[in-house]
């Protein structure tokens, strides 16, 4: 039988494991409050202000917000419409279209970023919000269409059929009948797209060579280049970049975990 000892040992194992995972993160939080070079001990919350100003994070965070809003907004529209068609309707080519989107989920940014840079530069789109956002919209759409299709396939079709019999058109049925029910699936999708877009590094790095559309993670990378010696400011900057995602995660962690696991397991 399972003894009380074994049960408490389980908590020890879980606890040690949690400490190992939290360790590096607690470490930079501690550092971010430490004494910067040239000052004495104590707690120094003003490091965040210094990092914010010296690292120009107001600008970079604003860029991040702009890119994230564009990517999540556009991807949500393409994903819900496309996923609705693939998940609830039968039409020639639907299988092929679905598999083409599925393949796109596996394509790494590394494979498309080089031609994207040269082609979008030729169109004058580098260093604009579109140059940074549109490639991410395409990547997000691949996943989003797959995600929403999976949802709509399992959703209650009788509801929308009833609405159609009442004479509602496709878009009206989708908007007034399906979307309110689909809210959990949509929130999960928004949370995932927000996470991926906010954290993306390679796309804004390559697509904004002059740095005018530098997002927060890139701001951190460039701040690192300037401040390799002052670990307190670096740590504070790192926390500034991680904080928005961390806050959303604390409130919506169910969606993060479900999304990242279901996105991989479902179907």
């Amino acid at each position: 039988m399972i003894s009380r000892f074994e049960r408490s040992m389980n908590y020890v194992v879980l606890g040690v494991f949690a400490i190992l995972i939290l360790g590096p993160l607690v470490n930079i939080v501690t550092q971010s409050l430490g004494a910067p070079i040239g000052t004495s001990g104590g707690i120094h919350p003003e490091n965040f202000v210094t990092a914010w100003e010296q690292g120009q994070f107001s600008k970079y965070l604003l860029n991040s917000v702009l890119v994230t809003v564009v990517v999540v907004g556009l991807s949500l529209v393409t994903s819900v419409l496309g996923g609705y068609a693939l998940g609830t309707m039968r039409f020639p080519g639907s299988g092929a279209i679905f598999y083409v989107f599925l393949l796109g989920i596996m394509v790494p940014t590394e494979a498309i970023i080089v031609p994207l840079f040269f082609d979008l530069r030729a169109l004058g789109l580098t260093d604009t919000v579109w140059g940074v956002a549109l490639p991410q919209v395409a990547m997000s759409t691949a996943f989003g269409v797959y995600w929403m299709r999976t949802y709509f396939r399992s959703s209650n079709r009788a509801v929308s059929e009833a609405a159609r019999i009442d004479g509602a058109g496709t878009l009206r049925t989708l908007w007034f009948v399906q979307l309110p029910i689909a809210r959990p699936a949509i929130i999960t999708l928004v949370v995932l797209l927000f996470l991926w877009t906010w954290n993306d590094f390679l796309t804004p790095l390559v697509m904004s060579p002059r740095g005018t559309m530098r997002t927060a993670p890139l701001g951190l990378a460039f701040f690192t280049g300037q401040h390799t010696t002052d670990t307190t400011l670096l740590a504070a900057a790192a926390i500034l970049v991680a904080l928005p995602v961390a806050i959303v995660y604390l409130f919506l962690q169910r969606h993060f975990i479900r999304g990242m696991i279901d996105g991989a397991v479902k179907d």
Binding site: I21, L22, P24, L25, N27, I28, L195, W198, N199, F201, P217, L218, L220, A221, T224, L234, A235, A237, A238, I239, V241, A242, V245, A246, Y249, Q253, F256, I257, M260
Partner: peptide
């Protein structure tokens, strides 16, 4: 799950 959520750039800094 935290390391999956934090930007890789931040994890690298840590």
């Amino acid at each position: 799950f935290l390391p999956q959520v934090i930007a890789l750039v931040v994890a690298a800094t840590a």
